[in-house]
């Protein structure tokens, strides 16, 4: 019954999203598409942070790897489908290669290695002008076509991205529900105990990182045709940090978290236009407040408010205390 209700809610949400562009202008549809692309990359971060309990500071770098891979392949005449899987595949392989040494050591080393990797990717994109166009970037990236029809119109492209994002979301949902995904949760809660129960911690964490990074690559393959022009800036270290922050703001470890976090990260700059350059300051301060008072993110906050409404106040307090207790490692 409950799961039936959840499925119905998901179906309504997807339908509403599919119909949304009909009532929206060109720019709004662009923002909505950007939100979907960001959410795909954030889904990957959530797998790494929320499920496998690691920290990645390189999601924007993987987004860049995906974006440049797909853009360069598209320019070479390779069909989009192939370029899309190449973008994800390369990110997956690189994820394995840098995750393997980092995860041998201890908890926070992946954060430092991905930090270093971010800087390195940015250097390569900026310096290898023959390949990436350097700071001038790559211009005129074509949007793909489907069954002979070009997806250049913004609404068509939105639906195309929506379909892919839905498929990737479903794949992620299946992954974290599978026994395999349950193992992630086990090792986040208590890695040593999980290991003693036969979970190969290193292999699982490594695969989680590689798959999460592949989602960054997939998102990049969608990002390049969306913006039609890419340069090194959105793939630097700063945006990678923002990816981590947005997932935590949304609610790491909850399935809806990345969507909420991506909405905040994409929409907040639009709403805070008047604040312009102060936007990052406000955002950073909000993140700290959120971590101090509600580390389960906006999704956790909504859940707490919901249970406050439905139960007597005392029980709700207990619930809140329990949720806080769970957040501890």
């Amino acid at each position: 019954m409950r799961s039936g209700l959840a499925w119905a809610a998901v179906a309504v949400a997807v339908l509403a999203l599919a119909l949304a562009p009909l009532g929206l202008g060109r720019y709004d549809v662009y923002i909505l598409t950007l939100w979907l692309v960001t959410a795909v990359a954030a889904l990957g971060v959530n797998l790494i942070v929320g499920y496998a309990g690691q920290e990645t500071l390189a999601q924007a770098a993987f987004l860049g790897i995906g974006a440049y891979t797909s853009a360069l392949l598209a320019k070479a005449g390779v069909p989009f489908g192939l370029a899309f899987f190449a973008a994800g595949g390369i990110s997956f392989a690189i994820g394995l290669a840098i995750g393997f040494p980092a995860l041998r050591v201890q908890k926070h080393y992946l954060a430092f290695v991905t930090l270093a990797f971010s800087v390195f990717v940015w250097l390569v994109i900026r310096n290898e002008e023959w390949l990436t166009g350097g700071v001038m970037g790559l211009k005129d990236i074509e949007r793909p076509s489907l069954f002979g029809a070009s997806l250049r119109p913004h609404r068509l492209f939105f639906w195309f991205v929506l379909a892919i994002a839905a498929a990737l979301t479903f794949a992620m949902w299946w992954l974290v529900r599978s026994p395999w995904g349950r193992a992630f949760t086990a090792l986040r809660e208590n890695p040593v105990r999980a290991e003693s129960l036969g979970v190969n911690v290193r292999r699982y964490t490594l695969l989680a990182f590689a798959i999460g990074s592949a989602y960054g690559g997939f998102a990049g393959a969608l990002y390049a045709p969306l913006v039609e022009f890419i340069d090194p800036a959105p793939f630097a270290l700063g945006p990678s940090l923002l990816f981590l922050l947005m997932v935590v703001v949304g609610g790491s470890g909850s399935f809806a978290g990345p969507f909420v976090g991506a909405a905040v990260a994409v929409l907040l700059p639009e709403w805070l236009r008047f604040a312009e350059s102060y936007y990052l300051l406000i955002y950073a301060a909000l993140v700290i407040l959120m971590m101090a008072f509600c580390p389960t993110g906006l999704v956790g906050l909504a859940g707490r408010l919901w249970s406050l409404r439905r139960r007597p106040a005392r029980m709700a307090e207990d619930e809140g205390a329990r949720a806080l207790g769970e957040a501890k490692p």
């Binding site: 942070v49 309990g53 920290e55 908890k107 926070h108 954060a111 700063g238 940090l241 981590l244 922050l245 935590v248 790491s252 990052l280 300051l281 955002y283 950073a284 301060a285 993140v287 700290i288 971590m291 101090a292 580390p295 806080l324 957040a327 501890k328 490692p329």
Partner: peptide, 17 residues
């Protein structure tokens, strides 16, 4: 008190700030 991950995230936010 909230754990290591919230603290790590917050130091990243402090850096941005």
């Amino acid at each position: 008190r909230q754990g290591v991950l919230p603290l790590v995230i917050s130091t990243i936010a402090v850096g941005l700030l």
